[in-house]
Design a protein around this nucleic acid. Structure first.
Lengths: 247, 247
DNA sequence: ACTTGCCTTCCATTGGACGGAAGGATCACC
DNA sequence: GGTGATCCTTCCGTCCAATGGAAGGCAAGT
């Protein structure tokens, strides 16, 4: 299938992921399923253009030009920079890990993360994707997702920790409350020792465009304070988004 | 020249920049110098792969997959996340715009920026490049750059504001002091009303890998405090970088 | 010295990219 | 409703440029 010449180059790029940030030529060829000679030539072109770069070690890595390009993606172009100051404020006020995430298909995509030195260890990384049913931001986004998405996610609720919610009925019930109360919580459902709170970030016409969340070791005592801090920040972001001409 | 099939696709990607984040098919073709039919086919492939995405309006933008990929670039992979908590601390301690930058050829490339609501308006954006001789981080990086780079930069010191340093001798003198004193400053040399301080960030073997800077409206009163805050942060980053196994 | 793993270059073959042309859709203006 | 602009999409015969096997060169490991 495929094998269109362009897609070969793309297959090469696709060989990189979080676990494979640097690859030798042959590893690259192997992972992309291309003959060595072909890979060699394509990689050469990609390097010349700046999509890849070669380390002194001879291994290849993603180049600066792709990094540049990535920054232009609308995933974050508007949202991320609008949110940035509010994330800092939020961090300053709470001193815990702050997350900004959007829905990508049936997963949560982390757009930005802000954490200090002394935070709960968390799984998320900027650019990584996690299941929606086991994270705070995920629940928020799921609660406001179109029906077909919700159906698909409810279809396979994979267990991550002993506390992960795997019964569709129970999750549905929670989602209803998320919509009613305006925030979602989790308790060690994604990783042990980590709880989270999250609220929706709304766009100009009230639609949910992202979710803003905090990760803390324990939720019971501070919930109210955290939720209100989150809501202040979320509203601030919405305000900026609305006024940003969406140029 | 070029015209290799792969590079056509890359030319299409190259048609995007900060001023052109969304393009129609024909604009894309025009900017890339390709026949419409060809562009159409290639863009189709790029979309299918996720390198581009199509808005409801019909315009094309950089897709999420490229955003993902960009995050893997070593420009920031290690540096940026190592620095992140320290940038926040620094912001918390000073409440002014914080910059993290590296040298890219003969320019300064901004890797990360952190600014609150109430800061001096600054030109820089993450992913953007500015001249080295007119910015604080630029002077730091230039002071520790290899000789040929320094020579080239000194060759054309373009004027940006009335205060921009355009005499090679004077800049050289400043660079010497930057190396001696361990920090650089600017006074409205890049944009009026903005001054800056910056210090080097050193890697495991003492080489300068990045620069850390602050932008403030006025430097005179607080210089000492800002410099020491910067140095604490820079040392912290270096420490993390060194211990990070450089996996 | 032999093997096994990398990377690089060459070049004859051929299959898939190319792009002109034609068709459709949507606007705006007369 | 006609006319002209500007956009997007599809088709298909030509032909050229990507392909990848083969051969050669390093460098390490046994």
């Amino acid at each position: 299938m495929s094998a269109s010449v362009t897609s070969r180059a793309l297959d090469l790029l696709g060989a990189f992921d979080t676990d494979h940030r640097q690859l030798t030529l042959s590893a690259l060829a192997r992972r992309a399923g291309l003959p060595l000679a072909t890979a060699h030539r394509l990689v050469g072109e990609l390097c010349r253009w700046g999509a890849l770069a070669r380390l002194e070690s001879g291994e290849y890595v993603i180049g600066r030009r792709l990094w540049d390009l990535g920054l232009l993606a609308p995933v974050q172009a508007g949202l991320r920079q609008a949110a940035s100051p509010f994330l800092h404020d939020l961090y300053g006020a709470t001193l815990v890990t702050v997350h900004l995430a959007v829905r990508d298909g049936c997963e949560v995509l982390y757009i930005d993360r802000l954490s200090g030195h002394v935070s709960v260890p968390v799984v998320s990384k900027v650019g990584s994707r996690l299941p929606m049913h086991a994270t705070g931001v995920g629940k928020v986004l799921l609660a406001h997702a179109p029906e077909p998405v919700r159906a698909e996610v409810l279809g396979k609720l994979t267990r991550v920790t002993p506390y992960t919610i795997t019964q569709p009925a129970r999750l549905l019930d929670q989602l209803r409350r998320v919509r009613a109360e305006g925030f979602a919580t989790t308790g060690e459902e994604m990783s042990l020792g980590a709880c989270s709170v999250a609220v929706p970030v709304r766009g100009p016409v009230g639609e949910v465009v992202a979710a803003l969340g905090l990760v803390v070791p324990d939720l019971r005592r501070e919930r109210a304070r955290l939720v209100s801090a989150l809501q202040v920040a979320a509203q601030g972001i919405s305000r900026v988004l609305a006024s940003a001409q969406w140029k």
